[in-house]
Design a protein around this nucleic acid. Structure first.
Lengths: 122, 122
DNA sequence: GTCAATGCAAATCCTTTGCATTCGG
DNA sequence: CCGAATGCAAAGGATTTGCATTGAC
């Protein structure tokens, strides 16, 4: 099954690149629809899932139980607002310092993703 | 509206304390049901939500888009297996070292939770 | 007795699946 | 053409809401 290069794949990825925030599948879909693009909701979900699987995109999951997407693959810190659900990037030490000063931090959670030793064998 | 101490609140919290893993609302519900407890699914969801809001419980969200709960409030590292969806606690440097050796790490994500400066005012 | 808490059913929200249609190679 | 990709409608799964009932105080 050779991959095919479609208009939809292009515009979804391009839409993501234009976002500094971390949009959800639905947000991408609605933005493209508003622009008049010919694309279906299902397709956006499918394309984003594929991009994550191909390691071209990262999925971020916060307490809102909705998948957000990040085209920045390097590990970096996200500040998640518990009130407005916005996700901010903290890219460097200064960003982090600023956040710790300006924002009310309640707690943090470091998730390390990978394959556990049980699953490695099979 | 004074809080009331109910049997259901007790058994939900007790069930959590007996878990080293990080159960979901549904898992707690089914476990209690199997034990013959008189409790509804909705109630488990509601109690767990309240406990998070009261800061007596922490919600963990991974790529599976299902809320897991952790009674350990201190910040600590979670290893999330991308294959079996299990969540492991890495409590100290040795746990971390072991994980990095034994498991295939693909990436990590540090989330800092709090209230952003925009929301602080209002 | 009062009113918070419960629990069922129904609703809601996000996401995936089935399948006929479209279109890239 | 062939079969991967699309997109609609329907299904699925987690969670919340409405509301009558129960039970803690």
């Amino acid at each position: 099954m050779n991959k095919r290069d479609t208009k939809q794949k292009q515009i979804v990825y391009e839409a993501l690149l234009e976002h500094k925030d971390h949009p959800t599948s639905l947000e991408i879909y609605e933005e493209l629809k508003n622009k008049g693009a010919r694309i279906g909701k299902t397709t956006v979900y499918r394309i984003l899932n594929n991009l994550v699987q191909e390691d071209k995109l990262r999925r971020i999951n916060t307490f809102d139980n909705v998948s957000h997407y990040d085209y920045v693959l390097d590990d970096h810190i996200h500040f998640v607002c518990e009130k407005c659900n916005k996700i901010y990037d903290l890219k460097n030490t200064n960003d982090l310092k600023d956040a710790l000063e300006e924002m009310d931090v309640s707690h943090n959670n470091l998730l390390i993703y990978g394959i556990c030793s049980d699953c490695k064998g099979g």
